[in-house]
Design a protein around this nucleic acid. Structure first.
Length: 398
DNA sequence: CCTCCACAGGAAGCGCAGGAGT
DNA sequence: ACTCCTGCGCTTCCTGTGGAGG
């Protein structure tokens, strides 16, 4: 009985003509066959990495460019292509270095690398050196060519220093059988300059720059993907233009454009429309912003959440020029109420910096002369959003 | 000119959970 | 069971500092 009605539902769903033909082609996981407006970069990377095909070690590469400019995508694309040609002789290890509690320290990064070889290590207890040795042995077990892609490497270096990179580049020199090529990807251009010169010279033997897309380039990208993703005539006129324009405002972020398009499509489908309208894009933009920040906030530890709620409290009570000391006062009361351990101001100061890094807060160090030097903290979102966060945090904490 | 506020943010080290070796 | 190790979140202690008020 249940099964029958379920099949009915599913059949009804598949029979109904939605707007999507293949939604996956809009996700970040999808690597398209053709990457518009990145011909130069792909050519450059291809030339640098071509020695892999002859079993030679290419130069290490440093890639930089703003978010959503196709850095990871191009690397993924090229490594897939190379692998096809080399009959799987080239192994690509991709790591995003920013993931909290996953790859945001040297130890955790190595433990991630080891897990690619199906080696699980305890989350603490072992010396980092021993992880290096394990990794080293695994690499040198057999002859192979390994491409190590470290995405958002600037975040990691900022947090724990450039020692990791130094160690990795050194491992490379000591390997006998295996050749390890390191590809560092960074959103921040200036970051490479204040690294140890030894690391700098060995990591950025080659540099590739990914400039932001402009609105018409983003539109090209969207058009191409929309042909794969949507049914014919599912997009009303102006939808692509709107997505492109919105994303171009945000330093030419193609990923944002794709997200907008996908969410707009989902909204249209959910509302039973046969066409995606410009209005859907408007709603999608709000939803995208909201979802992103909520996602980050949910993943924060309780202590950070307390800090954030304190900032919101101050904001709502009309305090202007919110500073660290104010926050700490409210924060201590908040913790007691929520039954959470009160951390020191030093630590809270770091938590504020973290929230700043995630883009949830804006903090700026200012000097008020006689009245000291502190950080001024501002919330950079709509009142609507602040209310939403407040509700969520109160629900979770109190 | 100097002073002095209210912190920023670096350095060191502590305690805990969890290894490895004996 | 014991010792001795480690990484990590956190505390403790510290020095540094831009500029308004004197």
């Amino acid at each position: 009985m249940t099964q029958i009605s379920l099949t009915d539902i599913f059949q009804g769903y598949t029979k109904r003509r939605g707007v999507f033909k293949n939604k996956n082609t809009l996700s970040i996981a999808f690597t398209p066959e053709n990457i518009p407006h990145r011909e130069d970069q792909i050519k450059q990377l291809g030339m640098i990495l071509a020695p892999l095909l002859g079993g030679e070690k290419p130069s290490n590469i440093f890639i930089y460019g703003k978010p959503g400019t196709g850095k990871s995508l191009c690397i993924k694309h090229i490594s897939e292509k190379i692998n096809e040609r080399a009959n799987g002789k080239v192994r690509t290890l991709y790591i995003n270095c920013k993931m909290r509690r996953v790859s945001d320290t040297e130890y955790r990064l190595l433990s991630q690398l080891l897990s690619f070889f199906d080696v699980e290590v305890p989350y603490t207890g072992l010396p980092t050196d021993s992880l290096y040795n394990k990794f080293f042995k695994l690499l040198d077990e057999k002859e192979q060519n390994v491409l190590l892609v470290l995405d958002e490497i600037d975040a990691l270096v900022k947090k724990v220093g450039d020692g990791i990179l130094y160690n990795l580049t050194r491992i490379n020199q000591e390997l006998e059988k295996t050749k390890l090529t390191i590809v560092g990807i960074s959103n921040n251009i200036s970051f490479i300059n204040d690294m140890d010169p030894r690391v700098k010279s060995s990591l950025s033997e080659e540099e590739v720059l990914f400039p932001p897309y402009n609105a018409s380039e983003i539109k090209d990208i969207l058009r191409e993907r929309s042909l794969l993703a949507f049914n014919e005539n599912a997009l009303s006129p102006g939808v692509l233009e709107k997505c492109s324009a919105l994303a171009a405002q945000e330093h030419g972020d193609a990923r944002k454009a794709l997200d907008l398009l996908r969410i707009a499509g989902e909204l249209a489908e959910r509302m039973g429309n046969e066409q995606v309208l410009k209005e859907h894009v408007d709603v999608a933009e709000k939803k995208l912003d909201r979802d992103k920040t909520m996602e980050i906030i949910k993943s924060q530890p309780k202590q950070s959440q307390c800090v954030l709620l304190s900032v919101i409290d101050l904001y709502k009570s009309g305090t202007k020029n919110i500073q660290t000391g104010d926050i700490y006062d409210v924060y201590t009361r908040m913790c007691k109420k929520a039954g959470v351990k009160v951390l020191t101001q030093r630590r809270v100061s770091d938590l504020i910096s973290e929230l700043d890094m995630f883009g949830i807060l804006n903090s700026k160090v200012i000097s008020k002369g006689r009245y000291g030097r502190t950080r001024e903290i501002r919330l950079s979102m709509s009142l609507d959003m602040i209310n939403k966060i407040e509700n969520f945090l109160k629900h979770v904490l109190i």
